[in-house]
Structures are given as C-alpha cells and as structure tokens.
C-alpha cells in the first residue's frame, strides 16, 4: 500500500476530509457480523432467512432514510413511530384502498408540515414539537383502533408478499427507497442545500445558509415532510406484512431509526452524513436482531442491547454543546 492510499484509508476510517461521516468502520462491523453469523449458525445463509432479513429490516430502512433528512439539518423527528402505527390503522379502516392509500400520504405530509412549521416558524425545539406530535398522533391512532385488528386491502398485502423476477417484492421496496432518497439527497439542489443548512447549524451560525439565498425555513419544513412521508411508506409496508392495523406496531421505531442513522456516521448536530452510511447502520441493526433471533436471545434483551448500542454510538459523537 503506498503512502497516499494509506492516508486516504486513514481519512475514510476517521470520517475526515469528506462530509459523509464515519461509515467505513460500521461497514466493517456489518460485514464481520454477517460473516460470523454465517459461520456460527447454519440457518443464517439460507435463502428464506435472507429474504426474512430484508423484509424485517425494510421498515427500519425506510424510516431511517427519512429520519436522516431531518438529522442532516440538525433536527430530530420523534413522531415517526406514531405515524407508522397511524398509517396501519388508516389502511385497516373499512374503506377502499384508492382512498386510504393516497390518504395516508396526505395525512403524513400534513403531520410533517405541522412539525416543520412549529419548529421553523413558531420557534419550538424539534424534540418538543415532534414529541408532542408523537402523543397526538398516537392518541388519534388509539381512537381509530384501540387494539390491533381490521383488514388491509389485498393490494397492499400483495405489494409486500409477492415476488417479481424471482425476487421477493421487499427487495424492490428497498431499491425504490434508496433510489428515491439518492435522487433527493444527491441528485437535486434541495439535497445540497440540506447539507449547507446543516453545516451552518452545526458550526453555530444558523443564518449561514440563508446568506447564500437558500430559503432555510422552507427547506427544513420540507425535510420534516419527507421524513413523515417515508414513515407513512414504512407504515404501508408493515400493514402489508401484518395484514391489519396495529396501534403499537410503530412503538420506539423512531429510536431505532435514530440509532441506525447515528451508527451510519451521520452527525446528530447536522451537516455531515451519507445515505450509504444510513444503509450500513440499518444493516448493523437488522443483523443484530436477526442474529439474536437465530441464537434464541429473548426480545427483551434485544431491546436493552439496542439501547446500549444507541448510547455507545452517540457517546462517540463528540460535540461542543451541553444539554438537549
């Protein structure tokens, strides 16, 4: 290895010299986990388990990708778990899919816009705004569907359980999510502006991006809308999997999403992060769940382990600010 490539490697490892954050190390961890699981268990490499891994990880992938948009501008959305539950509850109403399917996205956009409006125009801290939204949406969900039940339209079910070109459909959900997010983040001026806004927020001058003529408030609001829309998409996917509405299905999903985003090297202070990092973060969490299932670890320990992981990841992200 010549000196220049070793320094490039060092830079990548430390996440410096680019604004993609530290993603190489989690990639190594994910690969190591996969290899170890393949060696330690006979089921891991089986086709059915891999298909299951993708299907199980899909809601996390979709919500984490959405969460990444608000984290990049230094925000946080704690309401997405409720939006996921809410979406399944709406889909399980006794209404035709042509109404409920567009309806859930419309409502999610409204929720995201309200979050964004409170944060950018009414000066409410993102955590407070989205936390209260979490409660409001969860309350409405429980009014609609106090316990799990109801039936979702067959079309939704088919979109999740079917196969195409010999591959299970969830694979295509994943590809579509990634392409859409890639287009928004890297293939548009909007994505570039998100990084700019986040960079300003992280360096303590929240007006920096505005000085370049970027309408920061509007862009931040849109980020919350996008985050909510991805949460609704995850809700549709989950509704297709559990074939019913469930007020608790999204419980704590916002924290899993934040954990995945943070593992993938995206800085919670904003401006630094990457889509591939987020995908890697999702892979780490999904492999963790899948591995513990294969090794018959109880779900309660899984919760605790994820909490420890989140603690460890954020403890490694140094920042200047004390507090929230």
């Amino acid at each position: 290895m010549n000196p220049s490539s070793s320094s490039l490697f060092g830079k990548l490892l430390a996440g410096r010299g680019s604004r993609q954050g530290l993603w190489l190390l989690p990639l190594v961890i994910a690969l190591a986990m996969a290899l170890w699981l393949a060696a330690a268990t006979s089921q891991f490499g089986q086709w059915s388990n891999l298909a299951n891994l993708v299907a199980q990880g899909m809601p996390l992938l979709i919500t984490a990708v959405g969460q990444m948009f608000v984290v990049l501008v230094g925000g946080l959305d704690l309401s997405i778990g409720s939006v996921v539950s809410f979406t399944t509850a709406i889909l399980a109403l006794d209404l035709p899919g042509v109404i409920t399917l567009p309806g859930v996205f419309l409502l999610a956009a409204l929720i995201g816009a309200t979050n964004g409006y409170c944060i950018t125009r009414l000066n409410v801290h993102p955590i407070v705004a989205t936390l209260s939204m979490q409660y409001v949406v969860l309350g409405i969900t429980r009014v609609l569907r106090p316990v799990s039940g109801g039936a979702v339209p067959d079309g939704v079910r088919w979109m999740v359980e079917g196969t195409f070109l010999g591959l299970p459909l969830p694979v295509f959900w994943g590809i579509a999510t990634i392409l859409l997010a890639w287009k928004l983040l890297y293939g548009s001026r909007y994505g570039l502006h998100l990084f700019a806004i986040g960079g300003g927020v992280a360096s303590g001058s929240s007006d920096a991006a505005r000085n370049f003529g970027i309408p920061a408030s509007r862009n931040i609001m849109l980020a919350y809308v996008i985050c909510s829309l991805f949460a609704a998409l995850a809700g549709v996917f989950l509704a297709g999997r559990i074939v019913s509405g469930d007020p608790n299905v999204g419980l704590l999903m916002e924290l899993d999403a934040i954990t995945a985003v943070a593992i993938g090297g995206t800085q919670l202070s904003g401006g630094v992060g990457s889509l591939h990092g987020t995908i890697i973060g999702v892979a780490v969490l999904a492999l963790l769940s899948n591995g513990m299932n294969l090794l018959n670890v109880t779900p309660f320990v899984q919760t605790a382990v994820k909490g420890v992981l989140l603690l460890a990841v954020v403890a490694l992200q140094s920042r200047k600010k004390i507090g929230l």
Binding site: L268, G307, L310, K320, K321
Partner: peptide, 30 residues
C-alpha cells in the same frame, strides 16, 4: 454523559430508559 461526554440529553436519557425497561422485562420475562 451530558456534561462531560457532551451527548444529547434526549438520546442518552431515552436510551438509558430503554435499557432499563429491557433489563427489567428480561428479569421478569415480561
């Protein structure tokens, strides 16, 4: 964690709560 490690207080305390809840549920098997 908040003052020395400068970690976001929301994340730390929420994550810790999850760890504790998971721990108790594990001990009591739910």
């Amino acid at each position: 964690m908040v003052a020395k490690r400068r970690v976001s207080a929301v994340i730390v305390t929420l994550a810790l709560s999850i760890v504790l809840v998971g721990f108790v549920q594990y001990l009591s098997s739910g």
